[in-house]
Computed example of a mutant assay.
Amino acid sequence: MMSNLFSIFDPSTNIFNLSLNWISTFIGILFIPYSFWLIPNRHFMFWNFILIKLHNEFKTLLKNNYFYGSTLIFISMFTFVLFNNFLGLFPYIFTSTSHLTLSLSISLPLWLAFMIYGWLNNSQHMFIHMIPQGTPSVLMPFMVMIETISNIIRPGTLAVRLTANMIAGHLLMTLLSGTGNNMNYYMIMFLVLIQILLLILESAVAIIQSYVIAILSTLYSSEVN
């Protein structure tokens, strides 16, 4: 019996105390059709179309900070998070992005790299960025404190946003599916319809959240120059 409602998201499959649930993070490539590796084909052209659109979007956001290949890290992060979000929608597959362990491992190193680069190479710009233009002298210390706190919590907000959105939908689907044993035939049919609609919604959330974390990381990187 689970100790609390959220324990259903805990990694529990292990061999010799080594958790096997996290292997799901690396099996996304197995879901790609074999024909994807044959060029040209419809799968490759469709995915290449998405990557080009993402590249142009990130290139626009980076502005003057763009250089050849700079969007690759954000496109890779989008792809990685997207695959793991979708894997969690399959039965009996561990949702790795619903844990702060993974989401913080993505957001914290990126944020730390941006901050170190910004303060070492553009310290004057980083100081100016803490005080918005036109701020009264009396409010400057408070603005510096507020901007500092907002910068520090950025990796946490990125990680918690992804984790909370992935947990919320899965938790709702789990709670609804647990009520099916006490329902009659017609209510079960209605419950199945609701679950299908929730699954469609979760598919949209999986795409949106991977896009959001990539876009916000791009915006944070554009602020250091």
Rank of each mutant, 00 (worst) to 15 (best):
L5F: 12
S7R: 04
S7Y: 03
L18F: 11
F26H: 03
F26Y: 05
I27H: 04
P33T: 00
Y34W: 01
F36S: 00
I39K: 02
N41H: 01
F44W: 12
N56K: 13
T60N: 13
G69W: 03
S70G: 02
F74T: 07
S76F: 14
T79S: 09
F80N: 04
F83G: 01
N85S: 09
Y92H: 14
Y92V: 06
S96I: 05
L100G: 05
S105G: 15
S105R: 02
P109G: 04
L110V: 09
L112E: 05
F114H: 00
F114I: 02
N121D: 07
M126E: 11
I128E: 12
P132W: 01
G134S: 02
L139T: 06
V144K: 11
M145F: 12
M145P: 02
M145Y: 11
M145C: 06
E147A: 04
T148Q: 01
S150Q: 00
R154A: 03
P155G: 02
T157N: 11
L158G: 08
L158M: 10
V160R: 13
R161H: 15
M166D: 15
L171T: 10
L172Y: 14
M173L: 10
M173W: 11
M173S: 10
S177E: 13
G178T: 03
G180Y: 10
N182W: 13
M183Y: 06
Y186G: 09
I188L: 15
M189G: 14
I194R: 11
L197H: 12
L197I: 15
L201P: 08
L201F: 15
L201A: 13
S203M: 11
A206K: 05
I207R: 03
Q209R: 08
S217G: 05
S217W: 01
L219R: 10
Y220I: 11
S222V: 01
S222T: 02
E223C: 01
V224H: 01
